[in-house]
C-alpha cells in the first residue's frame, strides 16, 4: 500500500511539473501584455518602470525560474489588472463558484437518482420513456444556450427571477454565501439549475444503466423470493449496488462542474472563478490565467489521486496490479 501511495504521489507531482511548464510557455505566446497594460500616453521612463515592476524585462527562462520558485511557495504572481496577488484574487472568487457547483450537484443527485431508478425498473413504461427522452435532451442541450433560455423564460418573459449577478450575501465564518438571503437565493436558482440539468441527465443515465443490470442479478431475485417488500429490495439491495459507479462518476465530475462553471458564470454574470478566467483571458492578465490553471490542475490531480486511492482500498486488485507494474 505504501509503495502504491508513493508511486501515485510522485506521478501526481510529475503531472503538476509538466503542466506548469506547458502552461507557462503556452501562455507566454498569448501576446505582449506590455502593449495592453501600459497607458500609450505614458512616457518612456514610466513604461520602463512598469515593465520592470512586472518583471517583463527579464529573459523568458529567468521569468520561468521566478514562476517555478513562486509556485513552490504558493506565489503565482500578481494580477496585472487588479494589482493583487493572483492566487488571493482567485481564492476570493472561489466560494461563489463552489456554492454554485455544490447546489447544482445536489439538485442533480436528489432528482436524478430516483428518476433513473424509475426508468431502470420499468424500462417500457411511458414515464420511463419520458424520463429518458428528457435526459437525452438535457444531455444534448449546450450549457450556454440552456442558460440563455432559462434567462429568457424566467427573467425576461415571466420576470420571476433576476437575469444575472449574485445579489445579497451573508458572511458565514468570513465566507460570503448567497443561499441564506432571499435575494441571494433568487440569484442562485437559475445558474444552479443550469449547472444541474446536464449532471442530472448523466446521473439518470448511470442510475438507469446500473438499475437495469443490478435488477437482474441473482441476489435481487433471491431478495424478492425471500418475500422482502419491493421498497426494501429497491431501496436497499439495488440502490446500494448502483451507488458505487454513480458516486465515482460524480466525484470525477466535480472537477468538470467547476470547468463548466466558466460557461454558466459567463451567462449569468456570476462572480466566480470562471468569469474571472474569461475576463482575464480577454484582458491578457497572464498571472491570473496561469494561477487559475495551476489551481485547476492541482484540483484535478488531487481528485484523481483521492479516487485512485479510494479504489485501491475498495478493490485490492488495483493495488496489486499497481505494485507489479
Amino acid at each position: 500500500m505504501l509503495a502504491y501511495l508513493i508511486r501515485r504521489l510522485s506521478q501526481a507531482l510529475l503531472v503538476m511539473a509538466v503542466m506548469a511548464t506547458i502552461v507557462f510557455f503556452g501562455l507566454y505566446a498569448v501576446g505582449n501584455p506590455v502593449d495592453l497594460l501600459i497607458n500609450p500616453e505614458a512616457d518612456l521612463a514610466e513604461q520602463e518602470a512598469t515593465i520592470r515592476r512586472l518583471g517583463l524585462d527579464k529573459p523568458v527562462h529567468v521569468q520561468f525560474g521566478y514562476f517555478l520558485g513562486g509556485l513552490v511557495q504558493g506565489d503565482l504572481g500578481t494580477s496585472f489588472v487588479h494589482n493583487r496577488p493572483a492566487l488571493e484574487l482567485i481564492l476570493s472568487r472561489l466560494p461563489a463558484t463552489l456554492e454554485l457547483a455544490f447546489l447544482g450537484i445536489l439538485i442533480a443527485i436528489v432528482l436524478g437518482i430516483p428518476l433513473g431508478m424509475i426508468a431502470g425498473l420499468r424500462p417500457d413504461a411511458p414515464s420511463s420513456k419520458l424520463i429518458m427522452a428528457g435526459s437525452v435532451i438535457g444531455f444534448s442541450t449546450p450549457n450556454f444556450w440552456q442558460g440563455l433560455m432559462l434567462i429568457m423564460l424566467f427573467a425576461v418573459f415571466l420576470g420571476w427571477l433576476p437575469a444575472g449577478g449574485r445579489g445579497d450575501t451573508v458572511d458565514v465564518l468570513g465566507i460570503p454565501v448567497s443561499f441564506l438571503t432571499w435575494d441571494g437565493l433568487s440569484h442562485l436558482i437559475l445558474p444552479a439549475v443550469n449547472v444541474a440539468i446536464f449532471k442530472m441527465s448523466l446521473v439518470i443515465r448511470l442510475t438507469r444503466a446500473g438499475t437495469s443490470e443490478v435488477a437482474l442479478q441473482d441476489y435481487v431475485k433471491y431478495a424478492r423470493a425471500r418475500g422482502l417488500s419491493p421498497t426494501r429490495v429497491v431501496g436497499v439491495h439495488i440502490l446500494k449496488n448502483i451507488l458505487i459507479p454513480v458516486v465515482t462518476v460524480l466525484g470525477l465530475e466535480t472537477g468538470n462542474v467547476i470547468a463548466f462553471a466558466v460557461v454558466t458564470e459567463t451567462v449569468f454574470a456570476w462572480p466566480g472563478i470562471g468569469k474571472l478566467l474569461i475576463d482575464s483571458i480577454g484582458l491578457l492578465d497572464r498571472p491570473v490565467v496561469v494561477a487559475y490553471l495551476m489551481l485547476t490542475v492541482f484540483l484535478f490531480v488531487m481528485i484523481n489521486l483521492v479516487v485512485d486511492i479510494a479504489y485501491s482500498i475498495l478493490d485490492p486488485r488495483v493495488r496489486i496490479r499497481g505494485a507489479k507494474a
Partner: peptide, 18 residues
Amino acid sequence: IQLSFPALLVALLLLAAL
C-alpha cells in the same frame, strides 16, 4: 492525463494561447 481534464477547459485555454 489528457482525459482527466475536461475537454472544454483544455480547448478554452489552448485557444486563449492560439
